Simulated assay, not measured.
Amino acid sequence: MLKLRLSRGGTKKRPVYKVVVADSRFARDGRFIEKVGFFNPLLPKEKKERIGLEAERIKYWLGQGAQPTTRVARILGENELMPMPANGNNPQKAIPKKDRKKEGSDEVKKEESPKSDAAPAGEAKKEEAPKAEAKKEEAPKAEAPKAEAPKAEAKKEEAPKAEAKKEEKK
């Protein structure tokens, strides 16, 4: 599968990326088919030298079925080479990390509060345990007749064969 992705270059703590078309099985910084642009994240967003793309080649590869990675799709969307992607892959990325923790803890509290209003946690566990045991008891009963039936059929089939062999020996 062809991917439009970033290939890292530059030095330690000073990355510079090439936008490349590569087979998804190749290493990130390894073999690629064609270089179609560059991206320098250290420059301010206003600078023209931050991103350089070959629009015609990118459109060609998109037409050939190459799939951009999330970051490359954003870069292409900002440069109007394709529609700006919605955070469909990971909706949590739209929420800052600080707010994610707050929302997550509120959800946990909301989930726990109805349980605590209905009954203490110990009682809820006691009610769940008999249900689980009942399910375990039902499962073997349903499977037991199925397991016995083939054995009985096998014995019936073996009996005439055994008798025929005895008669042959006589």
Rank of each mutant, 00 (worst) to 15 (best):
N87G: 09
L62T: 09
N89D: 05
A118T: 06
N89I: 00
E153W: 06
K161W: 14
G104D: 12
K98E: 15
R25V: 15
A86G: 12
E168D: 03
I58T: 01
A164M: 03
G104F: 08
V20N: 01
R5T: 09
G104R: 12
K109T: 05
A121H: 09
F26A: 15
L62N: 08
E107M: 15
A124R: 15
K170T: 06
E123V: 15
P44T: 07
S113M: 10
R57Q: 04
A147N: 11
S113W: 07
G104Q: 10
E153Y: 07
K101E: 12
A121I: 14
E148K: 08
A121S: 10
E80H: 08
P41G: 06
P85L: 01
P150G: 05
G30K: 12
E78M: 08
A121D: 06
K169P: 01
K48D: 04
M84W: 00
K35N: 11
P114I: 09
E49P: 02
A118D: 07
E133H: 12
K48P: 02
Q67P: 05
N79W: 00
R74G: 02
I95R: 05
K35P: 08
K141V: 09
K170N: 09
K165F: 14
T70P: 04
R74N: 06
E112Q: 14
I51G: 02
K97C: 10
M84I: 01
F32I: 06
K166V: 11
K47S: 15
V108T: 11
V72I: 03
S116W: 04
V19K: 00
A121V: 11
E46N: 11
K146R: 11
K109D: 03
D106N: 12
N87I: 13
N89G: 14
P96A: 06
K165C: 06
G77R: 00
K101S: 09
R28V: 14
A124T: 11
A139G: 13
K110V: 12
E133G: 08
P41R: 07
S7L: 07
K115N: 10
A121T: 11
L76S: 04
F38N: 03
S116L: 07
